[in-house]
Design a binder for these strands. Structure first.
Lengths: 348, 348
DNA sequence: TCCCTCCACGAAAACGATTAAGTAAACGTG
DNA sequence: CACGTTTACTTAATCGTTTTCGTGGAGGGA
């Protein structure tokens, strides 16, 4: 194996140039696949690079060319339920374009967040994915202080001003669930929504009612409840209340898998059968959904795809495409399982 | 608000120097808190920096000083159950020292992994946290090709050679659970271990048997079973088998929360009470543990702490401390809940 | 007063690439 | 054959810092 002959230091573009008998400019052109370099010289340089095991120094490159091929994810909850899948989507998109991803976690502390943001800008990141809008987002003040650095909000509700942003299609997702229940002949549908303070809950309710209305099905007022948290316990108590009503529902739609899980417990407790007596649909498609008994039909949040979309939008902006200050909704997908059909119809 | 007067470009150290009437060398010294600069000059420079809103360019700094204040996490499963908590620990440690964290996900694809590794080294990262040992790890060949870049393996079992590494104390964790059950007077303990191919399972079994033996309690051969996966379903079937034995166990220890969850289902199904008839202990302390009915006593994996420890070890090595090729075990913690005591004893 | 030692600071050379501008040779073209 | 144009390279400046020396002056001792 050929080695750099002289020093123990890393081999630079200058070494390659001198060994190949060309200038560093030429090596650089070969590296960047520029057209104005002859075939045999190109080959010679390539060979030399291989022999010497040369690798371009990304830091030096970044200094001169003013881009670092790096984007950052700024989050306030690295351990959030959905964070990994979102991150993975972003990482997917980025690494497809040979872009690296920096991670910054703020715990929701505005001080930490500012510190991270400063550090990232110092580091000359090319763009930012923001999953930590509580503090830096435009909602609470003027626009982000990101001179010339493009950014995309990911899974951040409630931006006051138009801003590049990616969210799930909550309305469409709820509509999917509603249509599914209708198709199964259910007419007395109970909806356990999340806390009203969450923006998504309004859209989910809207998707449900609109779809039901279109099918001529009315939603009983007592069958629409806002939980005070997304927990199974809430799902359990609210479902219990509905089941104990004189004319109980024949289906429960929970605005989260946790809520639906609580519903399942309440239904089982009363000796009712799922789905024969009461069908259950959840929302999110967390891993627990498939492990329920029976496995839970649910509306899957397109987290991976959301991450990818956000990443792609950001990279487009980094590459100079003009960025539209637009909110993009990524469609949800219905995963039909035994809690509505009695036996799993589709894998996963 | 004072602004850079002349151009639209970013303000550099040279601008600061000229405005403050000193050389860039001096500004640099102030920036890096070097001693050889006088008090009033220092103050003048500091003021100028503030007025101009100057921020040092980390890329340029990295080029010259040969360190980037960046470490990377190389993982093969960004969506793994434990990945976030581990990452958060690493991020904690890093950001405490003003170090940024790069993320690289390989999906276990060795090709992708090599590509990421190359990219990270090109980027001159100061060190690596490796949670993706399947391919790059020494097990399958010679040492890592990381000339001069320190690294620490995190939550990676089975390194063939001594290598800086951080793992949970599986043995100690199992011992904690065993002691707890003994203290509660349980004597007929069933152990549902994970798949034998997992290195951790041997340690957990060992911790259990050693502790029981020390208390004079024997483990019945039929009460020690290896599952073929970590799933609740496995826990369910294996527990069922034990419960249907002539003299059933009075406690089930599952080597994962999922296994223990399955155990709970099997116990309930037989109309037995938890913990009166059968106590249940899990391992991992995933979020589902606290949501079980009854809430599950479990051995918590110290993921956050493991991440922190790995981060700190790495940063120490980056700072020139000599790195010991050593495996560090981080102690687990027992979280006592109702599945053994009948009522929660501790919060969380 | 002279000499030596510090102390603060500046000049200038890196760091390893990219890139604008320049140039010599080869190549038409009239 | 003289004269623009390409083609294929090279030269050298540049990106924004850090860092190694060098240096002038202040201070101290004899």
């Amino acid at each position: 194996m050929a080695q750099a002959h002289s020093s123990s230091d890393r081999v630079t573009i200058r070494d390659v140039a001198s060994v190949a008998g060309v200038s560093t400019a030429t090596v650089s052109k070969v590296l960047n696949e520029r057209p104005d370099v002859g075939a045999e010289v190109r080959q010679r340089v390539l060979d030399t690079i291989g022999r010497l095991g040369y690798r371009p120094n990304a830091v030096a490159r970044g200094l001169r060319s003013r881009h670092t091929d790096t984007i950052a994810i700024l989050t306030d909850d690295l351990e959030g339920i959905f964070t990994n899948a979102l991150m993975r989507g972003v990482e997917d998109a980025a690494s497809a374009y040979d872009i690296s991803v920096l991670l910054a976690n703020s715990y929701g502390d505005p001080e930490k967040e500012r510190k991270h943001l400063r550090r990232l800008l110092d580091r000359q990141v090319d763009g930012l994915i923001i999953m930590s809008g509580n503090r830096v987002r435009p909602r609470s003040g003027p626009a982000l202080p990101l001179p010339g650095t493009p950014y995309v909000f990911l899974y951040e509700y409630g931006a006051a001003e138009p801003v590049p942003s990616v969210l799930p299609d909550d309305r469409g997702g709820a509509a999917l669930a509603a249509q599914h229940l209708i198709d199964l002949g259910r007419r007395r549908i109970g909806f356990i929504n999340g806390p009203a303070s969450w923006e998504a809950t309004a859209d989910r309710l809207d998707g449900l009612t609109t779809t039901l209305a279109a099918a001529g099905v009315a939603l009983e007022p007592g069958f629409v409840r806002h939980a005070t948290s997304w927990s199974p316990e809430e799902g359990y108590t609210l479902t219990s209340a509905m089941l104990d009503a004189p004319a109980p529902p024949d289906a429960i739609f929970g605005a989260s898998d946790d809520l639906a899980t609580g519903a399942i417990a309440a239904i089982h407790e009363r000796g009712l059968r799922i789905p024969e007596d009461v069908a259950v649909v959840g929302f999110d498609d967390r891993s627990l959904a498939v492990h329920q008994r029976p496995p839970l039909t649910t509306v899957a949040l397109p987290l991976l795809e959301m991450g990818r979309v956000a990443g792609q939008r950001l990279l487009a902006a980094v590459n100079g495409e003009e960025q539209r200050q637009e909110l993009i909704r990524v469609p949800c997908e219905l995963r039909v399982r035994a809690s509505t059909t009695g036996r799993a119809r589709t894998a996963t």
